[in-house]
Write a protein that binds this DNA or RNA. Structure first.
Lengths: 107, 107
DNA sequence: CGTGTAAGGAATTCTGACACG
DNA sequence: CGTGTAAGGAATTCTGACACG
């Protein structure tokens, strides 16, 4: 029941037109940030880009940093660091989950 | 922070192709259920339908009921009842929120 | 009643390029 | 470097209709 909700944020379901509306960015900008490796939309079999809500959030962060005069290269590094931290947190939680399950199994 | 998350479920952002993939239904079926008033996607200025994750969930429920041999007309009634109940729950929560806010304001 | 399909048109998205700087 | 734009093509979506039942 809770497993579902959070997956909505990461599910790649929107095409660029909606993302454009949600972020206020131009398609040109959205595609350019992808080329610079700031975000990673998926593609349909026929090549149409698909974005998630978290991609939208990320684009708004990117837009903020750009406005501050930060170059895409630096933003890329920052985001990569953030992503790695999140991945680590997820791994930690997984381990706790395992331990927890193991503990309860013993009862 | 929490206000955002739940809104993802109801935000109309997907076009019919994705909904088709997510639900396994045909475009024909999805559009037909709309005509029968079982769901209410939004439209872009140019007439393209946009669906939310909750629409996707709803379509899966609809598909189940159809498989059980229930007619769209009945499903419509069932869903309307459910929707009304949810709306009522939301109103109740709003009131509780008001009371709560009022209470804390007094302190 | 619920769904498939072919038909024609309109709207969307894609890429590579020229432009400015 | 970051972004706008016109260009041409491919993929998507829309509606109304014929079909079966």
């Amino acid at each position: 029941m809770n497993t579902n909700e959070s997956s909505y944020r990461d599910k790649k379901v929107m095409s660029i037109g909606i993302v454009k509306e949600l972020t206020g960015l131009s398609e040109r900008q959205i595609r350019y940030y992808e080329k610079r490796q700031l975000l990673f939309p998926e593609r349909t079999d026929t090549g149409i880009r698909k974005y998630s809500f978290s991609d939208v959030e990320r684009l708004m962060e990117i837009a903020d940093r750009i406005e501050e005069g930060v170059q895409t290269h630096e933003i890329r590094t920052e985001l990569a660091k953030k992503d790695e931290k999140k991945a680590k947190d997820v791994r930690d939680q997984m381990i706790r989950g395992q331990i927890n399950a193991h503990f309860h199994q013993k009862l």
